[in-house]
Amino acid sequence: MIKISRELKAGIAALVILALFYWGFSFLKGRNLFNGGLNSYYTTYKNINGLKKSSAVTVNGFTVGKILDIRFSNDPAKKGQLIVEFTIEEDLHFSKKSIAKIYSGGLMGGKSLAIIPSYDGDEAKPGDYLKGEIESDIFSSITNKLNPLQSKIENVIVNIDSVTHHLNKMLNQRTIENLNNSFENINLIMESLKNTSATVEVMMESNQQNMNNTFSNIKNTTKNLKTFSDSLSKIKLLAISEKINRTASHLDSITAGIQAGEGTIGLLTKDEKLYNNLEAASKELEELLRDVKEHPKRFVHFSIFGKKERKYEEATETKEN
C-alpha cells in the first residue's frame, strides 16, 4: 500500500482550498465555473443609477446571468461613460437590436439589468455591445411629475408676494378710510333698497284688486283673440284663393288675346291702319262740331216766309286750314 506523506496531503488540501476560493470568488463576481463557457456582452451608460457588480441579468423576469464588471470607458469619444460587462449563462439567442435596460427590482431593492430581446437582424455574439437604456422607477417618475408642479407653485408664490406687496402699497391710511366710507355707503344703499322693497310691497297689496282686474282683462283679451283666430281658420280661404287664381288666369288669357290682336282692343293695339282711320275720323268730327258751334246758321235754317235756301259757302277759316 502506497503511503502518502503528510506534505503531499497538505499540498493537495491547499490546492483544493485554493480551487474552492477561486470558485467562490468567481461565483461572487458572477462567473459560474461549473456551467460551461461564459457569454460576455457589453453596454454603455452615462449613469447606471446604482447598478452594482453581481446584480442579476434577467430576460422576461427570469435570471439568465449577472453583472460581471463595471468600469469607465477609455475611448475618448465616450469619455465619462460607464461600460457594463454582463454574462449570459443560459443558451439564449437574440439579435444585436436587443436592448439592455436598467430597472428597479422593487421599492427597496437594488437595480437589475433586463435584456429586452429582439429577433430581427444579425444575431448578437459574445463581445457585442447592446443599446443601453434606463427605466424610470417610481420615485423618478414622481420626481419628474412634481418638478413642473414645483415650478408652477413657485411662480404662484412669487405672484402672490408681488400682489401682497402692491396691496400693502395701496392700502395706506387714506385708502382704508375710503374703503370704510364705501362700506358705509353700501350699507346706506342696502337700507334704502330695503325701504324701497317695503314700499313696493305696500303698493302691491293696495293695488291687488286692480292688478287682478288687469290680469282678468288680459285673460279675456286672449280668449277673444283665440275666438277670432278660430273664426279666421273657418273661412274658406282655399276657395277664395282658387277664385283669385281663376280670375288671374282669365286676365292672362285676355291679355294674351290683346297681344295677339284679337277683338276690338287687340285690333286697336295691333292694326295701325284702323288706328289711323279712327284718329282721322275723330279729328273730322271735332272740326265739324267746332264749325257747328261757331256757325250754326250754316246747318239750321228757319224762315216764316219761306225764304229761299242759301247755298252753303265754306268758311274762310276752314279754307285757310
Rank of each mutant, 00 (worst) to 15 (best):
M1L: 11
K3D: 14
L8E: 08
I12C: 15
I12N: 15
V16Q: 12
L18A: 12
A19K: 08
W23E: 14
F27R: 11
L28V: 09
K29Y: 01
G37M: 06
T44A: 09
K46G: 15
N47E: 11
I48Y: 02
K52Q: 07
S55E: 06
F62P: 03
T63P: 02
T63I: 06
K66Y: 12
R71A: 12
P76N: 04
P76Y: 02
K78D: 11
Q81D: 10
L82G: 00
L82K: 03
E85F: 04
L92K: 10
G105A: 15
L107Q: 11
L113D: 00
I115V: 06
D120Q: 09
A124Y: 02
G127N: 07
Y129M: 05
G132H: 10
S140W: 09
K145W: 11
P148L: 02
S151A: 12
I153Y: 08
I157C: 05
D161W: 01
T164D: 10
H166D: 15
L167H: 02
M170N: 15
T175E: 10
I176W: 11
E177M: 06
N180P: 00
N181D: 07
N181V: 02
S182V: 00
F183V: 15
N185P: 00
N187G: 12
L188G: 03
L188V: 03
M190E: 14
M190R: 14
M190A: 13
L193K: 10
A198E: 14
M203C: 11
Q208K: 15
N213A: 11
N213M: 07
F215P: 00
N217G: 11
T222Y: 14
N224A: 09
N224P: 01
S229K: 14
S231T: 09
S231M: 09
L232C: 08
K243S: 07
I244D: 06
R246Y: 13
T247G: 13
T247V: 15
H250W: 09
D252E: 09
G257K: 13
A260W: 00
T269D: 03
T269H: 02
K273R: 00
L274Y: 05
E279Q: 07
S282H: 03
L285G: 06
E286R: 04
V292T: 03
V292Q: 07
H295E: 05
G306L: 01
K307P: 05
Y312L: 05
T318D: 13
